[in-house]
Design a protein around this nucleic acid. Structure first.
Lengths: 219, 219
DNA sequence: ATTGTTATTTGCAATAAACAAATAACAGGA
DNA sequence: TCCTGTTATTTGTTTATTGCAAATAACAAT
């Protein structure tokens, strides 16, 4: 703390996932400065020298700047570095990924979301970051409560079923999914809270914990 | 590339796992310079400005410097940063973990290994790094070929069974383990290669791939 | 041939998953 | 009120998978 160093090129980049229209999407930002000014890219920024705990602070600041809210789920993903990744010189970027329920987005923010299969050409090493983020998301989705963070705080079993299918990308048997999820105690029914319609009302659930819970696994 | 920056405090630290005497151990190094000169710590070092692909290069250099060999498995773990983690000022450290078969260690190197339950007090944020590394190792062990990288290139099914139990820390049924592993196609028998003794000889196997293979999972 | 030892396979009960279908609960209209 | 359409939830039934215990295999040494 007693010494100060010239600000190195230390930055964060964020892959912000949401599900819109049944599809996994990323929220991109148009760059306001060179390099790649005007190009769509992952939201990011420099780590401020005064950010005093960890780069997580910088990632949260970037997400607040982009969306005005905190992400319900934010996790460090991977760190990329080298002289070639940024034309300004040797740099190091700590990448994060976050899950954002669509319900938290404004209409204009939602309009900017791009399905992961239809991403434009991204600058820097952002394509690598995206690949790693999707891989991690899919991987963890199969053995944790992760996809639930793409839902609002109250949801039905079928909401959860759909969101798991959309993040993993495969069909999951309904009855087995129900059984498995309830067995893991990651959600709990909210007493006397149902969602209606012209049909049998659906029980509303909420997460038992605000943090990620891995499922029990045996080899 | 056209600009150069003052060398920032960018470093790597490595958690080097091995299994000795049926126990999961870490290889530590005594620090040769301040801060914490003379103290046992995770092997680490600064990232050189000329290291031109990624911090993985620096991690490999550190491991070569410590052990004289490359680790069969090396993976980026997590990045720690902040002004408080190093008395010299704001720093960023990319942590790695690696798996080293005990057979690759010299006698003196093996003598320096410390079981993870008996670690001394480590400097900097090395205790956090160790915690995260063990967590990741245990997590991946339950659904991938990861523990096999703690074995030499030829091993028996029972070697593999033991190493999985030691990394995960629980007992695994022998028959089920065999079945499960063979089902995953991560190893293949080496034709006509057996390990003998005063008993039925054991089939020798090798990994089908030099990279980590995750098991098939269903939710 | 017998014994001791570790490797590998087998059999069976207990669990869990996949699949298909039934039942439940409601709104809205006949 | 009763019937219909719709989504939610539960129930079988069949089909893998796992857990556990025991049997069998293959060798060295005696």
């Amino acid at each position: 703390m007693e010494q100060t160093y010239q600000q190195p090129l230390v930055m964060v980049d964020t892959a912000l996932f949401t599900i819109l229209d049944e599809r996994l999407c990323l929220l991109l930002a148009r760059r306001r400065e060179p390099p790649f000014e005007g190009v769509l890219a992952l939201p990011g920024g420099f780590v401020h020298i005064e950010e005093d705990t960890d780069t997580t602070m910088a990632a949260r600041r970037v997400i607040r700047g982009k969306l005005g809210i905190d992400a319900p789920y934010l996790e460090q993903l991977f760190t990329f570095s080298g002289p070639a990744r940024d034309p300004r010189g040797w740099s190091i970027s700590v990448a994060y990924y976050a899950l954002i329920p669509a319900a938290l987005l404004s209409q204009s923010q939602a309009a900017e979301a791009v399905p992961v299969e239809e991403l434009p050409t991204l600058p820097f090493d952002h394509p690598q970051i995206v690949d790693k983020a999707i891989e991690r998301l899919r991987g963890k989705a199969t053995y944790s409560s992760l996809p639930a963070f793409l839902l609002p705080s109250e949801f039905t079993m079928n909401d959860l079923h759909r969101i798991y299918q959309q993040t993993i990308g495969t069909r999951l048997d309904q009855a087995s999914f129900r059984h498995k999820i309830l067995e893991q105690d990651i959600i709990e029914p909210m007493p006397n809270r149902f969602r209606g319609g012209a049909h049998r009302p659906a029980q509303l659930y909420r997460l038992t914990s605000r943090v990620l819970i891995p499922f029990e696994r045996k080899i």
